[in-house]
């Protein structure tokens, strides 16, 4: 694959990251924000794998595996927290959960 091709893949990866960021910022329901975080994580994953494929380096996929592990851990804890919060707070509106402030 050529360099321009790689650049295109990287632009796509950036786009995935941006979309995920938009979701975190724009959605008020906590579950959607968690979902958007997953999308955000997929962006750099794509970037790693594409770069690894461009150069034929297994390190790209190795990084992808580590990112994946990170995502898994994060989802586990995140959803656990979500369930815990759902007992006492209104988790469809993250704006209402704002006691950690001045």
């Amino acid at each position: 694959m050529t360099d321009t091709f790689l650049i295109g893949m990287l632009v796509l990866a950036a786009g995935l990251f941006a979309v995920g960021l938009f979701g975190v910022l724009a959605r008020r329901a906590v579950l959607f924000q968690l979902l958007s975080l997953e999308v955000m994580l997929s962006g750099p994953s794509l970037a790693f794998v594409a770069a690894g494929a461009r150069h034929g380096d297994p390190a790209g996929q190795g990084m992808f595996v580590l990112v994946l592990i990170l995502a898994a851990a994060e989802v586990a804890l995140g959803l656990a927290l979500y369930l815990r919060m759902a007992r006492t707070a209104d988790v469809t509106d993250s704006d209402s959960i704002r006691d950690l402030r001045h």
Binding site: M1, I7, A53, R54, D57
Partner: peptide, 12 residues
Amino acid sequence: AVATGLAPGGRV
């Protein structure tokens, strides 16, 4: 395009 000096590859 950033030149990294790595060899162009394909399937890993």
